Computed example of a mutant assay.
Amino acid sequence: MDHVGRWVYQEEKVPHAFSLCRVLDAGTFEQSYDLLGVVQVTVDRRHPEKLPANLRPWALATLTTGGYGFGRFYAAYSTLDEEGEPDRALAHEYIDWSGTGVLAPTPPASATEPEEGRSHG
């Protein structure tokens, strides 16, 4: 008696990757994404949550070593389609890059300056 089948753990694996894009015309109706690179990553089935946590450090290392200039960048952890292009994003983030480091937003003036007319005492 032959049984034909396949074990659940033998299901075909969907490839996953980190990708980095430059955001062109950020904040406008013409905003678009220029794909700079894709790196396929191996998913640890016992700890799949580790990959999204590594997205930002990977993106910052890529920006630092790649010599990318000032701009807004989009990093994503996603599945890959049949052509090896990013498909379904599982985690993502935008990074505003100075050319040498992350641009940090400045706090509003009200948070850094004392209010006028406020009594202190």
Score class of each variant (00 low, 15 high):
residue 29 F to N: 15
residue 13 K to T: 13
residue 6 R to N: 04
residue 34 D to Q: 08
residue 19 S to G: 10
residue 24 L to M: 15
residue 12 E to K: 12
residue 3 H to Q: 04
residue 4 V to I: 13
residue 51 L to K: 05
residue 45 R to V: 08
residue 26 A to S: 06
residue 39 V to G: 00
residue 6 R to I: 05
residue 33 Y to P: 05
residue 65 T to C: 02
residue 60 L to R: 13
residue 16 H to Q: 01
residue 6 R to K: 04
residue 31 Q to F: 06
residue 62 T to K: 11
residue 20 L to T: 09
residue 66 G to K: 06
residue 2 D to T: 01
residue 24 L to D: 10
residue 62 T to S: 10
residue 10 Q to T: 08
residue 12 E to S: 04
residue 23 V to D: 13
residue 54 N to T: 03
residue 46 R to C: 09
residue 35 L to T: 09
residue 47 H to P: 01
residue 31 Q to C: 09
residue 59 A to R: 06
residue 40 Q to I: 07
residue 22 R to T: 08
residue 42 T to A: 08
residue 16 H to A: 00
residue 24 L to R: 08
residue 8 V to A: 15
residue 41 V to C: 11
residue 66 G to P: 01
residue 36 L to S: 05
residue 55 L to T: 00
residue 9 Y to H: 15
residue 57 P to Y: 09
residue 31 Q to P: 01
residue 8 V to W: 08
residue 25 D to F: 12
residue 43 V to N: 07
residue 2 D to K: 03
residue 64 T to H: 13
residue 60 L to T: 08
residue 10 Q to K: 05
residue 30 E to T: 05
residue 58 W to E: 11
residue 30 E to Q: 13
residue 44 D to Q: 00
residue 10 Q to G: 07
residue 65 T to L: 11
residue 9 Y to P: 03
residue 47 H to C: 01
residue 23 V to S: 09
residue 10 Q to M: 14
residue 25 D to A: 10
residue 65 T to Y: 09
residue 58 W to C: 02
residue 18 F to H: 05
residue 32 S to P: 05
residue 53 A to S: 11
residue 2 D to G: 02
residue 2 D to I: 00
residue 63 L to M: 02
residue 51 L to G: 01
